[in-house]
Write a protein that binds this DNA or RNA. Structure first.
Length: 427
RNA sequence: GGAGAGUUGGCAGAGUGGUAAUGCACCGGACUCGAAAUCCGGCGAACCAGUAAAAUGGCGCGCAGGUUCAAUUCCUGUACUCUCCUCCA
């Protein structure tokens, strides 16, 4: 959520900044008009409340002296009705202002390329040269099925399309990967967390999946009290400190968690229908940071580097791109996507997304800190995948495949695989 | 699932219809070579409006409603915490 005062003070700047994010100048003008009406009503309302407080005190005084206060009480009855009316009008305007305000995306940082879609994304660095194959590299789903470690058919039978069973060394590889990732992040100062996988609407609002993106998730109705299967650990990790005021001396705070993520993938019918790339349920190791505003862009660089380190240690080629203003997520001021090389697709595919949400989520979720001067202010939140585990399995299968159908285990994972160095089909 | 108790500033804790005591902590001062102790004074909740910044006002006692001229206080609903019973991996 944006700061309404900022919109009031710099409307033209806001309009310009949000124009590439699908926000029209008319929307901002409408918001400002409603806000002005709202504030005018508040002034009138508060004047009446002041009067009520003053007269109420007089009534108390008269009664204490056993006098007759019936005239004042009669007058106040009318004032009370007016206040009730104005309160309601203010509440209605408040609702209208809030309706618009919570649907405005974050302001892109000045360093972000301006443009409406992914065509304006900019590659900023590339790591390692993709391996040259002297045979035709297979797609990971083919490798996995041949090795008997991925079973998409039974996933579809038991749950539906876009669900999978990992088996045997497939399951072990997945487990090895997230244990490795969590250990590496722990070394960098992230505290490991196991959060709830179902969250309430307030949490979904706090990280801004709600109210705009309700179609993308699975919601479970529990006796009229809806709970949503988390689409990412960002939700429970960022809401961990919601509605709290943190001691500034405790910042920065780094959290990491492995969780399953559930996404309905509405609107992506026909895309990535095979393999591990786009499933309704997948594991992801997430990193979340709570930082002081002045540190957040520096922390974004470190966060991205922490995600990249996993790929470097796994020796998987990747590149990093800065998302254009129109391609970044709703709550982000700046996002780096890390894309890993998939030989069978002959392209880079997203494996991590690292965002600085500045104070956008903090304002929604009411996460504040007390600075050295005792002043309460919004902190900044960041989140990034480190990494999407299923997509990492896909990348390993494809990049480490051998002509005979076996897959070499990346050196860094061997200790996590109990010494297994190669995945070979068992008959 | 059932019964009871509770939720008030950073912490502790009073307040049964008249507009939030007090203590600790914190800040300033006195005393002291300095500190501690003591004494004096003050600040002290988030939010909204307002202002150049102040002042000032509103709101505010878990949350949402209701009754009333007036609600921390009465009524209704609800969330969470604790205790006991029940159930359970």
């Amino acid at each position: 959520m944006l700061d309404l005062k900022l919109i009031r003070q710099r409307p033209d700047w806001i309009k310009e900044k949000l124009s590439s994010r699908g926000v029209t100048a008319e929307e901002i003008d409408e918001l400002l008009g409603l806000d002005e009406q709202r504030r005018a009503k508040i002034v009138a309302d508060e004047n009446l409340k002041k009067k009520r407080n003053d007269v109420s005190e007089q009534i108390a005084q008269i009664k204490r002296e056993k006098g007759d206060a019936s005239q004042a009480i009669k007058d106040m009855r009318e004032v009370g009705a007016q206040i009730k009316q104005l309160d309601q009008e203010v509440a209605e305007l408040d609702e209208k202002v809030t309706y618009i305000l919570v649907r405005l995306p974050n302001i892109p940082d000045d360093s972000v390329p301006v443009g409406p879609n992914e065509d304006y994304n900019v590659e900023i660095r590339k790591w390692a040269t993709p391996r040259e194959f002297d045979f035709e590299p297979k797609a990971h789903w083919e490798i996995g099925e041949n090795l008997g470690i991925l079973d998409f058919e039974r996933g579809a039978k038991v749950a539906g399309a876009r669900f999978v069973y990992y088996k045997g060394f497939g399951a072990k590889l997945e487990r090895a990967l997230y244990n490795f990732m969590l250990d590496e992040h722990s070394k960098e100062g992230y505290e490991e967390v196991i959060p709830p996988y179902l969250v309430n609407n307030d949490a979904m609002f706090g990280t801004s999946q709600f109210p705009k993106f309700t179609e993308d998730v699975y919601t479970v109705i529990n006796e009229g009290d809806p709970l949503t299967l988390i689409p990412t650990a960002e939700v429970p990790l960022t809401n961990y400190y919601s509605h709290e005021i943190i001691d500034g001396a405790k910042l920065p705070i780094y959290l990491t968690a492995l969780t399953p993520c559930f996404r309905s993938e509405a609107g992506s019918a026909g895309r990535d229908t095979r393999g591990l790339i786009r499933l309704h349920q997948f594991n992801k190791v997430e990193m979340v940071k709570y930082v002081k505003p002045e540190d957040s862009f520096n922390e974004l660089e470190k966060l991205t580097a922490d995600a990249e380190d996993i790929l470097k240690k796994l020796k998987l080629p990747y590149h990093v791109i800065t998302l254009a203003s129109g391609d970044a997520s709703f709550s982000s001021a700046k996002t780096y996507d890390i894309e890993v090389w998939l030989p069978a697709q002959n392209t880079y595919r997203e494996i991590s997304s690292c965002s600085n949400c500045t104070d956008f989520q903090a304002r929604r979720a009411q996460i504040r800190y007390r600075d050295e001067n005792g002043k309460v202010q919004y902190l900044n939140t960041l989140n990034g995948s480190g990494l999407a585990v299923g997509r990492t399995v896909a990348a390993i299968l494809e990049n480490y495949q051998n002509e005979d159908g076996s897959v070499t285990v990346p050196e860094a994972l061997v200790p996590y695989m109990n010494g297994v160095t190669k995945l070979i089909a068992e008959n």
